[in-house]
């Protein structure tokens, strides 16, 4: 449900990657020669190409049992699936990922002093521009039409240790729903911690649209200092089958992500990240 309160806003959010994605019915004519044409089409904008395994189709539905792993455990196809292709710009910060049933656009933090370029002024317009261009390419090469079935926004944050928290056992100093002195009161030493939360995404009528997946992992940075990796994914159905319907879900998903991020993290960290609202 859309919320009319202003979105939480941070000068220096701990984001290291944002991915915006559309999943659609497979384009059976998007095969290797067409991928070559697409690379040619992008020219110097995305001059580097890499090949990756495809991502399985994923759907948010109500009334099904939730798989811990999305791997279905069976294979029906007699030919290997076509790969997912990465198209990278020279800086490697901007990335397009394309496979037969998915279009993804990523921004990645490469250098420590890279600033997050903001959703409204960079992430959203770049995705929209490239997605429209992709659809035009499909049409002009008679490859097919995008029929979307799921949209997805992913925010990956690196929460670094420092003055507010020092070890993974201090998880309560990072997240509001964890007792701040949980570690002090614990009988045994805590080595690391993780969690996974799922929330429902609904439209203004309260109808199910999808889910928000919040995942925390303990990890270490390149200097061996502890950090928490907080990944938040909003996935659900487009509000309509056209580009506007896709963008509407993406905007709503991004709103859920930003509000949830602010809701679960502690104000002491918001201060460090320069919360402005």
């Amino acid at each position: 449900m859309k919320n009319e309160l202003p979105l939480p806003d941070f000068t220096s959010p701990p984001l290291i990657e944002v991915a915006v994605s559309v999943q659609f019915e497979p384009l059976s004519r998007l095969v290797v020669p067409e991928i070559g044409l697409l690379w040619q089409h992008y020219g110097s904008r995305f001059s580097h190409v890499e090949q990756r395994p495809p991502i399985d189709a994923r759907f948010e539905k109500l009334g099904v049992r939730v798989p811990l792993s999305q791997k279905p455990g069976f294979q029906l196809f007699d030919t290997p699936p076509l790969p997912r292709i990465w198209f990278l710009d020279d800086s490697k910060r901007e990335l397009l990922q394309i496979q037969q049933n998915r279009f993804i656009r990523n921004w990645r933090k490469i250098e420590d002093d890279d600033d997050y370029p903001r959703y409204d002024s960079h992430i959203r317009p770049r995705f929209l521009e490239d997605f429209i261009d992709f659809q035009s390419f499909l049409a002009s090469n008679n490859i097919g039409k995008v029929v979307p079935n799921q949209c997805e926004v992913t925010y990956i944050n690196h929460l670094k240790s420092g003055d507010v928290w020092k070890t993974h056992a201090d998880i309560g100093k990072v997240f509001k729903f964890w007792e701040p002195d949980f570690n002090e009161g614990s009988r045994y030493e805590i080595e690391d911690a993780s969690f996974q939360i799922r929330q429902l995404i609904k439209d203004s009528e309260g109808e199910f649209l999808g889910r928000l997946h919040i995942t925390l992992q303990s990890a270490f940075d390149e200097n061996d200092d502890p950090l928490f990796v907080l990944t938040i994914i909003a996935r659900g159905k487009p509000l309509s089958n056209d580009t506007d319907g896709i963008m509407d879900f993406l905007d709503l998903g991004r709103e859920y992500i930003v509000r949830s991020f602010a809701d679960i993290t502690r104000p002491e960290l918001h201060y460090l990240w320069g919360r402005k609202d």
Partner: peptide, 11 residues
Amino acid sequence: SGLSGTTWYNE
């Protein structure tokens, strides 16, 4: 990391 993300972590 996230499904569409590209970041991997040493586990």
